[in-house]
Amino acid sequence: MSASHAERLELREQFDTPAQQKEASTLGMWIFLVTEVMFFGGLFTAYIIYRSFYTDAFARASNTLDVAIGSLNTVVLIVSSLTMALAVHASQIGARRLIVVFLLLTMLFGGVFLGVKAYEWHHKWEQNLVPGSRFHLPGEPQPAQAQLFFSLYFAMTGLHAIHMVVGLGLLAVLVARAQMGRFGPHYYAPVDMVGLYWHFVDIIWIFLFPLLYLVNRHG
């Protein structure tokens, strides 16, 4: 399959040139990410407002989160971003085997992140820290406020995890297509797009981690 053939194969009829198509898809992806920022932005706003209302209760509730596990997950996610970037690079230089390897590695780290997250949630469930009638934080003078912290914690990490799951799905599709040798220097836009998405999800976590885990750990 020659490069020019692949180009023709992938050039959609509404576009004149591959360059135009690439520009369109990149811009589209960026705009999509902007909408995602606004989406999470609503939650971040809610969090910041309540955090300033109920500083102490939030600090106490935050202290029940395990910083070590959170940090571990942060590292895992950053590494996955690295492997993702390497996958994009591999597709640019047309190293087919490497694309698959790096994509699989990215999926592996993503999976580890979700596993750890699931473990944390399960732990919270056992500690009765899930909002609801069973909610109980021993010694907490302001249970309603602490519960609000956990409501936001689950809403934010949950939404983030849903984005991770979507990302894993996209990666799986890429792996299948990479196996078929679809990507190369002339055509790697899909890898690039998913890469952007993956980095975005990573960045959201980079904001979530200090907000949720580190609010009261200064000094």
Partner: peptide, 28 residues
């Protein structure tokens, strides 16, 4: 997207009583 997250939160509040908007649970 901000509308989307707002209705999502109202729905979550109704279903799980997470208390983001209800003063009875400390919300605003």
């Amino acid at each position: 997207p901000v509308l989307a997250i707002s209705v999502l939160l109202v729905a979550a509040e109704r279903v799980f009583h997470i208390g983001i908007f209800d003063p009875a649970f400390g919300g605003d």
